[in-house]
Design a protein around this nucleic acid. Structure first.
Length: 867
RNA sequence: GCCUGGGUGGCGAAACUGGCAGACGCAAGGGACUUAAAAUCCCUCGGCCGCGAGGUCAUACGGGUUCAAUUCCCGUCCCAGGCACCA
């Protein structure tokens, strides 16, 4: 082995390397390297950033973790490393990168764990945070540790409460007693977004109950339109945008008023198919529709009461397929008048009409709606076809039955539809749809909708209406481990928000914080905290705490002002740093966290409490994240990591065995970052070997170092190509291919007879974001740079001209099959290429004397001779 | 049921706007160095046919467009995720 002691002949490098180390055999020891540079970075404040002085701000954020007792999950490491690579790469490109981290430590998760091991969450959190901090430092993430948040600290949740007050003042927070989701295992109300298939997200076996409880809500529905529309332009991953779009559920339609026969009441329905109004043959109200009791017939009251009871006691099994649900309902002994034709149509109640959506009432058009059709068939109600199917749509229509679908007869089907024997919800033209004032007959669905809506509006019978599936955000939690809702009630029950200067309303350090499941939070059992006297008047505190998702809905704003105890955030820094540049996290937060965060941002903007800077491409000034990308899921040897399977990768073990840089590289290499990948123990060794090869090359290479222009052109071209590719790949979060490209360059550089300072420096700067300690070691060690790579290096610029070789290989095909390859000047003309191709012996042999029909020439790629 | 992704060697994966399928890495086999092993270095590595030059098949499956398809179009199957009686 060649010894690398030659360095000692030059002036000693300004590094913490000892002479012994320099003289020693060059074996890469990650434990030594990583500790050395972590300490150096701490001592020199390398990761610290001056937010005020920064000239070229770039704010990179990763979704902050919940500091669990188990410590950092490799999934977190995967996510954080991906974000860190982007941040570090930008830093090398001259940006002032702000990359903070914090801890989302409030919430049921912490609380349940604390109960399980019989400890107080306030005792557990600091130790967990200390452990997380150790692990995050170990991974070499570029965090500015002076700017961290812990959502359970009064310094933080004081401002979470402040946000509540801003929303309250703006009329965006209200208390209401309406049906909410109650999880008996959590002992608390949970948000719509936390209900998965009718079960609690934390307790997959626990059916969520519907209960009426007084709770606090945020009016997220006020922003439904804006939350939806902004999705059309914000630079977020399509997957996430789509999930939000589905959740918000915009629907365009009309509201129509139906007179109740023989009474003054009117029932308003919502429909997306006003064009089928002439086909409405009955009406269905939600079971608890407010008008039912007023208009129901006397004889039907018993049946109604019974049906309601049945609905309440047998909650729908949401996991059953919708198609398997059979329709139930009862006639309520009243009729409505169809406003377009004066027909009296019976009114039913049924659980298939939801009270929380639209107006809680529908006009039923069985001929053109599957659900109404099913109901009509079951109850023997008339089915009146008012849309004649479009021929093309009809031909495409496939019956669900696989036997009949290949042989269906379009004309027979049309006849069935027109007779009302089959439901048709597709395209077509209106028929049987006219009265003395308006006719839809012959109009296509879209035009018919417009015509009838116009007529309804002119008669004051209805209007166009956009409805959203999104409902208001219930933020009350009848639990202990969260920020108390800063509200007082006087003896008459009136609401008094706690004045801002009295925040925080601190969480009392009680021992018994178990929920009793009675719908009241544990704080209701602490009279000395709950009952207060102010200016001789008695008040009772709100005992609900706020949803954990509120803590995380604004933390990115706090990071810029963690040292400010006078205000939640400094407006000047907000203008400078926000909206932030890139946010990275898992797609499991696509609707919950990300939707709430956007809403809080808009709400604060609306309340005049937040004004972010103008950034190019941002059409709405109240969107928090310029760019959002989600990382994929990391699995282990083909299956999901879980504690029960015992296959959770603990980063500590791997760092000890391989080093943080090797682990970082492996995580970024194992698959496309945004798609996730499979962590395989056998594969990580390749990354370590790569670093070993690099280390040896930097320390022991005997290649003469020459000027760039004396290098062989192909090597120089390879270098410039790599510089270009790595930059593009990192910008696109394609870390796996960026690493491949760097490996290819190393392979080429090692094989060369000469090298240059440009190659040696470029290579390590390209790698630095992925393996930061290693890069620093090479930079200050082997390359003998006097200052940190993170302070003194710049990402190299590629020269476009040098990304192309002068001579390129061209493929010669005959009839699409490769027969020969030739080397030609890069800019060879079409004619020259064609001539060369036809002159090739192999091409002529393949042609076997046949005449040339046509020659396709793609300059720079191939020539294809067609015979 | 609807909407998204995805399906490529033994394995993880590449492939710009349609232009040499399998880069990079793992595993495997062979060799060098070594007393030996580890480490390192060199070579081979999709299937089939052929001693070989080479030929031929191959990107889930079945069709289509094209001089040319992993890439575009139509249909089918499988996997992962989201929504689901939302009128």
């Amino acid at each position: 082995m060649i010894r690398g002691g030659c360095f000692a002949l030059f002036s000693p490098p300004a590094t913490p390397l000892t002479p012994e180390e320099i003289m020693s055999e060059h074996i890469y020891d990650p434990a030594v390297v990583e500790q050395r540079w972590q300490k150096y970075w701490d001592d020199h404040g390398t990761n610290q950033i001056d937010l005020r002085a920064a000239k070229n701000p770039y704010y990179v954020l990763m979704m902050f973790p919940y500091p669990s007792a188990e410590g950092l999950h490799v999934g977190n490491v995967y996510a954080f490393t991906g974000a860190d690579v982007t941040g570090r790469h930008r830093r090398l490109r001259g940006y002032d990168v702000f990359e903070p981290i914090g801890f989302d430590a409030f919430g049921i998760h912490s609380e349940n764990f604390a109960m399980k091991i019989n400890r107080h969450p306030a005792e557990l959190i600091p130790a967990n945070i200390a452990n997380f901090t150790r692990q995050l430092r170990m991974m070499g993430l570029m965090y500015d540790w002076r700017r961290s948040v812990d959502t359970t600290s009064p310094d933080y949740y004081k401002w979470t409460q402040w946000i509540f007050l801003q929303l309250y003042k703006a009329g965006l927070a209200y208390r209401d007693e309406k049906e909410v989701n109650f999880c008996p295992d959590c002992g608390t109300v949970i948000a719509d977004e936390q209900v998965i298939d009718g079960k609690c997200e934390r307790h997959p076996d626990t059916e969520v109950q519907r209960r009426k409880l007084p709770s606090w809500f945020f009016r997220i529905t006020n922003f439904a339109d804006r939350l939806d529309k902004n999705l059309d332009w914000i630079d977020w991953s399509e997957k996430t945008k789509l999930a939000q779009k589905n959740w918000i559920g915009r629907s365009e339609g009309a509201e129509v008023d139906f007179q109740v026969q023989g009474r003054n009441e009117r029932i308003r329905v919502y429909t997306t198919r006003p064009d089928t109004l002439f086909g409405a043959t009955f009406m269905v109200l939600a079971v608890d529709h407010p008008l039912v009791d007023a208009i129901a017939g006397t004889r039907e009251r018993d049946a109604i009461a019974k049906y309601r009871e049945a609905c309440a006691s047998a909650p729908q099994d949401a996991s059953a397929p919708v198609s398997a649900l059979s329709k139930t309902g009862v006639f309520i002994g009243a009729n409505a008048i169809n406003p377009v034709n004066g027909a009296a149509i019976p009114i039913y109640i049924s659980d298939y009409v939801l009270s929380g959506y639209g107006t809680g009432a529908i006009m039923a058009v069985p001929a053109h709606d599957e659900r109404d059709f099913e109901f009509a068939e079951k109850f023997g109600l008339p089915i009146r076809c008012v849309i004649s199917p479009d021929a093309a749509a009809l031909a495409d229509f496939r019956l669900p039955d696989p036997i009949s679908r290949d042989s269906h007869d379009s004309e027979a089907l049309r006849e069935e539809i027109l007779r009302g024997q089959t439901c048709w919800s597709g395209a077509g033209v209106a028929v049987n749809s006219s009265n003395s004032e308006v006719s839809l007959d012959g109009l296509a669905v879209g035009a018919a909708k417009a015509r009838i809506t116009q007529w309804l509006e002119s008669k004051n019978l209805g209007k166009a209406k956009t409805t959203f599936r999104l409902r208001d955000w219930g933020i009350s939690r009848q639990r202990y481990w969260g920020p108390p809702i800063p509200v007082l009630y006087d003896e008459d029950g009136n609401i008094h928000p706690v004045p801002e200067d009295q925040l925080p309303v601190t969480l009392p350090p009680i021992r018994d914080f178990r929920p009793k499941g009675d719908g009241r939070g544990p704080l209701a059992n602490v009279p000395e905290w709950m009952n207060v006297e102010i200016n001789g008047r008695k008040y009772r505190r709100e005992t609900d705490v706020m949803d954990n998702f509120l803590d995380s809905a604004w933390y990115y704003l706090r990071y810029v002002s963690t040292d400010d105890d006078k205000r939640p955030y400094d407006p000047e820094l907000i203008r400078k740093w926000l909206p932030l540049d890139v946010y990275i996290g898992g797609n499991e937060h696509a609707v919950l966290h990300l939707l709430y965060t956007r809403f809080i941002c808009m709400a604060l903007d609306h309340a005049g409490a937040l004004k972010m800077g103008n950034r190019p491409g941002m059409t709405d000034g109240a969107e928090p994240f310029r760019k959002l990308r989600s990382h994929g899921l990391l699995i282990k040897e083909g299956s999901k990591m879980s504690k029960s399977k015992g296959n959770v990768v603990n980063p500590d073990e791997y760092v000890e065995k391989w080093g943080a840089d090797t682990l970082r590289l492996y995580l970024m290499f194992l698959g496309p970052y945004q798609q996730g990948g499979d962590f395989r123990d056998t594969d990580i060794v390749g990354m370590r070997r790569f670093l070993n090869r690099l280390y040896t090359w930097y320390h022991e290479s005997t290649q003469p170092v020459v000027a760039n222009d004396t290098l062989p052109k192909p090597l120089l071209v390879k270098t410039h190509q790599t510089i270009k590719k790595v930059r593009e790949d990192i910008d696109a979060l394609s870390y796996n291919t960026a690493i491949s490209a760097i490996m290819e360059l190393l392979n080429a550089a090692k094989d060369a007879l000469q090298t240059s300072d440009f190659i040696r420096e470029s290579l390590i700067v390209m790698l630095a974001p992925l393996a930061p300690h290693f890069a620093e070691e090479i930079w200050q060690g082997a390359l003998r740079k006097p200052e940190s790579i993170w302070k003194s290096a710049r990402y190299p610029d590629h020269i476009e001209e040098l990304t192309r070789l002068d001579e390129i290989e061209i493929v010669l095909q005959v009839g699409g099959r490769i027969r020969d390859k030739i080397v030609v000047p890069r800019d060879a003309s079409k004619e020259a290429l064609e001539a060369k191709a036809l002159a090739s012996d192999k091409v002529r042999a393949a042609m076997a004397g046949a005449a040339v029909k046509k020659v396709i020439v793609v300059p720079g790629r191939l020539v294809n001779v067609i015979i």
